[in-house]
């Protein structure tokens, strides 16, 4: 892709809304060392979002978009869920797939891009919620891992179908009660990170988004490994503060609790992934 698509023609500059000019002038394009530390100074790729006030998912979005090493050549595939409300407002190429088939769509996009642009690095990143990744889309998700597709899958785990009123999902914890699951969940939470390892992912991480720098590291590692080796998976705890009865300023606290309990930081990598990560660290890119 040409950077010229971000350059506004001089003759029409005076008619442009300021946020579009800022995207050209202040966003961090073409700099693989970009990261969350740019957030206070650079123009973000997320213009506004329509998530609830204080939603941890919005934090995750900001950190992930700030950490993509190659945003100008990154395609994001998303699925139905709270996250899908945000995608129309980010300044990247995004594809909204049907509910659950996001990894199948991403696989196709990645293969076509490799065929069409053999000399260019194009990253394909799947961003989807727990319903899309683990319930409705588990088949497509795991099959893409089995096929060793070179894509990064990021799951926003809020442990519930939040925007449809609070139904239990595969990632809901056993015993949790929600508005539409009044008896409490009868079965255990699906250990998706373990399934990802068993299915052939080369880099897997489970974490909350309480630490921006840690999210940046995980995203960069996952994308670099996916580029060269094979599928990678990031499992992020982004609690739905409304559905668990928290106030809008308590998302961070909830995630910090998660850090100590079931979402304690867990990282897995294969020897091939380790070699890539080591090399990228030496190059100063992670």
């Amino acid at each position: 892709m040409s950077f010229n698509i971000y350059k506004v023609n001089e003759e029409l500059r005076e008619f442009m809304p300021p946020e579009i000019l800022e995207l050209e002038e202040k966003a961090t394009w073409g700099n693989p060392k970009r990261g969350v530390m740019d957030l206070p100074y650079a123009k973000e790729l997320l213009e506004e979002h329509s998530l609830c006030a204080g939603c941890p998912e919005s934090d995750a979005f900001r950190y992930i978009l700030a950490s993509l090493p190659n945003p100008e050549d990154t395609i994001i595939v998303n699925s139905t869920g709270c996250t899908s409300l945000v995608f129309p407002q980010i300044a990247l190429h995004t594809v909204h797939s049907l509910f659950g088939n996001q990894n199948a769509v991403a696989s196709g996009i990645k293969r076509v891009l490799e065929y069409r642009f053999p000399n260019k690095v194009k990253d394909v990143v799947v961003l989807a919620g727990d319903g899309a990744t683990v319930d409705i889309g588990l088949d497509c998700t795991l099959q893409s891992f089995f096929r060793q597709e070179k894509i990064t899958t990021i799951c926003y785990d809020n442990e519930v179908y939040a925007n449809t009123g609070g139904q239990e999902s595969g990632l809901t914890v056993k015993g949790h009660v929600f508005k539409m699951a009044p008896k409490g969940k009868q079965w255990d939470k699906v250990p998706m990170w373990q399934l990802a390892i068993d299915s052939g992912c080369h880099y897997v991480v489970r974490m909350t988004v309480s630490s921006p720098r840690r999210v940046e590291q995980a995203v960069k590692k996952a994308i670099y490994v996916a580029r060269e080796v094979g599928p990678t998976y990031i499992h992020l705890y982004t609690p739905c503060i409304l559905e668990i009865g928290r106030n809008s300023d308590e998302g961070l606290e909830e995630m910090k609790l998660g850090d100590k309990e079931r979402f304690s930081f867990f990282e897995y990598m294969t020897p091939q992934a380790e070699e890539v990560i080591k090399r990228k660290k030496e190059e100063g890119l992670i």
Partner: peptide, 13 residues
């Protein structure tokens, strides 16, 4: 036409 992605776009602007 807004963005300068090609010579024709610049001319059209």
């Amino acid at each position: 036409i807004i963005y300068a992605w090609s010579d024709e776009a610049k001319e059209n602007a």
